[in-house]
């Protein structure tokens, strides 16, 4: 077991999640280095999304340890973890469709905003100043996508198409200036062309923000190949391989996990 180095942002040691008798994650050791894009791949049910859910606090670990930036977050509640600089998107869109794009994105900046009743109800000028600041930041982020999205800031989220909803989710995850972003299947529910577009956009955002660490779960191998620096392959909750995508893809153990024994 290695000790924490400055280079490692997220570290999981012996991380285990059990659902009854099923080991969704089985003694998983994963290091995520500062500034890298880590691809998390594996067949269906291999524990990829479970890993994202447990580090973001949606599930709690049965055993093992997770630390983020050197701080032990294993027992932290979901609502505290975001304050350590972690945010995420979800496999199935979790936007609040009846709210405006602005409201949805503001949620991502929630912990930087003043939530006091007095501030919100009485000090309306201070509140409006906050709202303006968030609107400006949101427009800037949406502008990265090179679409008409900034003009739709106050439209209801339900009026957007699938790809725009995904973009809004990504903006919501980024507006709080996190250190680590978890992207859970950003290509889900989109066509091949749309996926390509989103990949370019993710790369563009990374360039413009600089130094952002990303864990990306994806089935679309083209996307993984283009964006990731490194990949971890899971199967039955265990890490079976780790390395550059090209090496991982050529690994016979990985091929067997995906395709079954020949």
């Amino acid at each position: 077991m290695t000790s924490l180095s400055n280079d490692v942002l997220l570290e999981s040691r012996g991380l285990t999640v059990r659902f009854g008798g099923l080991f969704a994650l089985n003694e998983l050791n994963i290091d995520v280095r500062n500034g890298e894009v880590l691809g998390l791949i594996g067949p269906n049910g291999s524990g990829k999304t479970t890993f994202l859910n447990v580090i973001s606090g949606v599930y709690s670990a049965s055993a093992g340890k997770i630390s983020l930036g050197g701080i032990d977050i294993t027992r932290e509640k979901a609502h505290n973890i975001s304050s350590y600089g972690l945010s995420r998107t979800f496999q199935r869109s979790r936007l609040c469709l009846s709210l405006s794009v602005f409201d949805n994105i503001a949620l991502g900046a929630q912990r930087t905003l003043n939530n006091g009743l007095w501030h919100n109800v009485v000090q309306r000028k201070a509140f409006a100043a906050e709202a303006r600041k968030i609107a400006e930041e949101a427009r800037e982020l949406l502008g990265v996508f090179n679409t008409a999205l900034p003009d739709k800031l106050f439209d209801p989220a339900i009026s957007l198409g699938m790809i725009d909803r995904r973009r809004v989710e990504i903006c919501r995850a980024l507006i709080g200036k996190p250190k680590l972003v978890l992207l859970d299947e950003p290509s889900a529910g989109m066509t091949h062309d749309e996926t390509d577009q989103v990949v370019d956009e993710i790369l563009g955002i990374r360039k413009s923000l600089g130094g952002l660490t990303i864990i990306i779960v994806e089935h679309e191998m083209g996307l993984i190949e283009r964006v990731t620096d490194r990949c971890v392959v899971l199967n039955y909750g265990k890490k079976i391989c780790e390395g550059k995508f090209r090496d991982v893809a050529a690994d016979p153990v990985v091929r067997e996990a995906y395709l079954g024994q020949a």
Binding site: G57, H79, S83, C96, S98, Q110, F127
Partner: peptide, 25 residues
């Protein structure tokens, strides 16, 4: 028309998203 109203709505509509982004339900 304030953050409080927005957070109430988010808590009603999606508790998981709310808590992941730091709202204590």
């Amino acid at each position: 028309r304030s953050w409080v109203g927005v957070w109430f709505d988010v808590v009603r509509l999606d508790e998981t998203a709310a808590s992941v982004f730091g709202l204590k339900i």
